[in-house]
Simulated scan of single mutants.
Amino acid sequence: MTLGEALRRSTEHLAAKGSGTPRLDAELLLGRALGLQRIELYMALERPLTAAELAAARALLARRAAREPLQYVLGEWGFRRLTLGVDRRALIPRPETETLVERALSLVAGLRAPRVLDVGTGSGAVALAIADEHPGAHVASIDVSAEALALAAENVHRTGLRVELVRHDLFDGLPAGPWDLVVSNPPYVDPAEIDGLAPEVRDWEPRGALVAEGAVEAVARGALAVLAPGGALALEVGDGQTPAVSALLCALGYGSVAVTADLSGRDRIVEGVRP
C-alpha cells in the first residue's frame, strides 16, 4: 500500500467513525507513525509503506477511531508558543484558553515582576504560557488532582520554565497572596449537559476538570480575599455563562468588569479588578 492510498483510506475510515476533521487527523497520525511532517507526506504519496509502518499507523488510527482525542493519541499539542505533553490526566489545551492567556498578559503587562496564581492548572498550559511570555512573572499553580500536577511538572521540565506547583483544593480558599493576578479555567460544565458532549470530551477528558458545581463562584470569592488592591481576576467560562458571571463579579465588589470573546467570537472571558 502506498502512502497516498493509506492517507485516503485513513481519512475515509475516520470520517465513518465520526471524526469532525478526518483528513487532518489522518495526516497527523500518519505523519507521527512515519516520522514525517505534513508537507513531507505529500512529497512521498507514491512511496510504498513497510509492514512496520502500516502496523504503527493502524495502531494510532484505531485509537482515534475509538474517539480518543487526537491530542491524546499524539501525546502532545501546541499552545501559544509552546508544545506541551497532553494525556488523560488533564484537559486538552484549547484555542479559547489562549484568549484567557492573552487577557492575563494584558492585565499584568505594566508590572515588572507580577505575582500570578493559576487556579486549576491541569497540564500547566496557562501558567507556562504566562511564564514564557512574561519572563519577569512569578507564577504559582494549584490543582486538586495529583495526576494533573504530575503532568504539569513534566511540562515544566519539558519547557524549562519556572512555575511553582502546589496541590490545593480551590473550595478550601486560595493560597495567601497578595497576588497581582488570579487566572483560572475552572470546571464549568453543567452536570446535566455532560452526557450531550462529544465522546472525545465526555468519555476521555477528566470529569473532575469539566464538572464541579460552584467552582467559578469559589474562584471568584477566593480571589477577592487574596488579590492585592488593584489586582485582577481573569476567568474562562462556558459559552452563554458570561452574563451571570459578570453579575456575580459585580455583586462581589469587583470593579472594571469586562467580557472578551474568544477567537470564534463567543464571549468566554470575564475579568474584574479588586478595588
Score class of each variant (00 low, 15 high):
Arg32Asn: 02
Ala62Ser: 11
Ala247Gln: 13
Glu213Met: 08
Asp239Asn: 11
Asp25Gln: 10
Gly85Gln: 13
Val166Asp: 00
Ala56Gly: 07
Arg167Phe: 06
Ala251Met: 01
Ala247Ile: 09
Val144Met: 01
Ala65Asp: 05
Arg112Gly: 01
Thr11Glu: 12
Ala146Ser: 09
Asp203Thr: 09
Arg158Gly: 04
Tyr188Leu: 06
Asp25Glu: 06
Ala261Gly: 06
Leu249His: 05
Gln37Pro: 00
Asp190Leu: 11
Ser264Cys: 05
Leu233Gln: 07
Arg221Pro: 00
Pro69Phe: 12
Asp143Arg: 13
Glu12Tyr: 00
Leu14Gln: 11
Pro175Ile: 15
Ala223His: 07
Ala129Asn: 07
Leu24Phe: 12
Gly238Ala: 07
Gly4Met: 15
Arg8Lys: 14
Ala251Tyr: 00
Glu217Asn: 04
Leu107Trp: 08
Ala261Pro: 01
Val201Trp: 02
Leu84His: 04
Pro135Ile: 12
Ala209Lys: 14
Gly272Thr: 04
Leu252Ile: 14
Leu151Phe: 10
Pro48Asp: 10
Ile269Pro: 01
Thr242Arg: 02
Ile92Tyr: 01
Arg202Ala: 11
Val189Gln: 01
Leu41Glu: 03
Met43Tyr: 01
Ala62Ile: 00
Gly78Trp: 03
Pro69Thr: 06
Ala55Lys: 14
Val216Trp: 00
Val101Met: 05
Pro243Arg: 10
Ser184Thr: 05
Arg23Asp: 01
Leu91His: 06
Pro22Glu: 12
Val86Met: 06
Ala176Met: 05
Ala127Thr: 06
Ala234Glu: 05
Leu197Ser: 04
Glu5Arg: 15
Ala198Arg: 15
Leu36Ala: 11
Lys17Asn: 04
Leu100Gln: 10
Pro187Ala: 14
Gly122Asn: 10
Ile39Trp: 10
Ala198Phe: 00
Leu41Tyr: 02
His168Gly: 03
Leu107Tyr: 09
Ser246Gln: 08
Pro275Glu: 10
Leu84Asp: 02
Phe171Gln: 14
Ala131Pro: 03
Asp203Leu: 15
Glu164Val: 12
Glu236Asp: 03
Asp262Ser: 12
Pro187Ser: 13
Glu96Ala: 08
Leu174Asp: 07
Leu54Asp: 01
Ser184Ala: 13
Leu248Ser: 08
Met1Asp: 03
Leu128Thr: 06
Leu249Pro: 04
Leu7Gln: 08
Asp262Glu: 04
Thr97Asn: 06
Pro187Glu: 08
Gly122Phe: 09
Arg63Tyr: 01
Gln37Ile: 00
Glu53Pro: 02
Leu61Ala: 13
Ser184Asp: 03
Gly18Leu: 12
Arg221Tyr: 01
His138Met: 12
Ala215Cys: 06
Thr83Ile: 14
Gln241Ile: 09
Glu205Ile: 11
Asn155His: 06
Tyr254Ser: 08
Leu28Thr: 05
Thr21Leu: 11
Pro275Ile: 11
Ala125Ile: 13
Ala59His: 15
Val257Met: 10
Asp267Met: 02
Phe79Ile: 12
Val189Arg: 01
Ala6Leu: 12
Pro48Ala: 15
Glu5His: 14
Arg47Gly: 04
Ala131Met: 13
Ser10Cys: 09
Arg58Val: 03
His134Asp: 03
Pro114Thr: 15
Phe79Cys: 12
Gly173Ile: 04
Ala57Phe: 06
Ala56Tyr: 01
Val211Asn: 06
Gln37Lys: 15
Arg162Glu: 03
Gly253Ile: 15
Asp143Glu: 10
Glu76Phe: 08
Asp132Glu: 13
Thr2Ser: 13
Glu200Phe: 06
Thr11Leu: 05
Leu70Thr: 05
Lys17Tyr: 00
